[in-house]
Design a protein around this nucleic acid. Sequence first.
DNA 1: AATGATAATGAAAACCATTTCCAATAAGAA
DNA 2: TTCTTATTGGAAATGGTTTTCATTATCATT
Lengths: 148, 148
Amino acid sequence: MPGPPWWYGRFQDAGYRLTLPRQAILGTLSRTSKHLSAEEIYLSVHRAYPAVGLTTVYRTLELLVRLGIISKFDFGDGRSRYELTTSRQRKHHHHLICSRCGRVIDYTDFIDEETEVLGKIERVLSQKYNFRINNHRLHFYGLCDKCK
Amino acid sequence: MPGPPWWYGRFQDAGYRLTLPRQAILGTLSRTSKHLSAEEIYLSVHRAYPAVGLTTVYRTLELLVRLGIISKFDFGDGRSRYELTTSRQRKHHHHLICSRCGRVIDYTDFIDEETEVLGKIERVLSQKYNFRINNHRLHFYGLCDKCK
DNA sequence: AATGATAATGAAAACCATTTCCAATAAGAA
DNA sequence: TTCTTATTGGAAATGGTTTTCATTATCATT
Ligand SMILES: [Mn+2]
Ligand SMILES: [Mn+2]
Ligand SMILES: [Zn+2]
Ligand SMILES: [Zn+2]
């Protein structure tokens, strides 16, 4: 699937420049399936572009979250973690988190009831509490095979 | 429903002392339905017992989380927030969060149906990923009536 | 009640992820 | 080019949380 990544348009539309640091950060995020922290992204980008600073990484991450290109998570280890938002490439998924070692597993094998019930709840809550619901997060916590 | 609160036993069993600062903190948490931050708890406790320090509040909250008496949440406003865990008094619930103003609503609608489906998912995931799942969290994000 | 062992506490200092400041640079428009 | 504004990086500041350490409270044992 060649051609410019889907986020080029977002930058233009919003009036932001797709600079080299920003491309490098997006590159790192699109090349991994892990949930990277700001520092991990910085270290990765820094290898190829030593001039890019940690401050720019933080600023860019904030911008990307604001543009809806990436999502920010807190898995309880004291730092924020990021991943590309749901798109053609990346399917909507939920998380399985090990409380001991911090391992995070993405799962997309939803059983039908899961999707169905979440949709229903979303509709009911929207009406009852007069909310405009944009998204949801479902996390399961426990011990992974190595930790239990 | 008089008699000692249900957490007295937990302290004894685990070998911890139910001291005055700890009782004051538990008192504050059981008297509110809000999701308080450490500082808010400190201020509340401080009014009745000025000798209690912020450090003790943090330490006690960590202990209470470890004992499973309270739960720690991150709603994205830069500080952790706490509430009593599910019990006789407090029903299991999920959260509705306003992305703009930070308002958090506890909801229990469809909780039976939810619980049933989540239990089923838990069983499937436990087996597939060989996890021992202890609990889960479901958050819906959007804009509240005042913010949308 | 006095003693001793250990748990709990509070104030100050340290920690550390993130944000803010600010001067320098890059990018695009004219 | 020249002007205007967006973007950047390093240093310093911020702020919630944790650590340190000397003191105090609690409880079991004399
Ligand atoms: Mn994920
Ligand atoms: Mn709640
Ligand atoms: Zn693990
Ligand atoms: Zn709101």
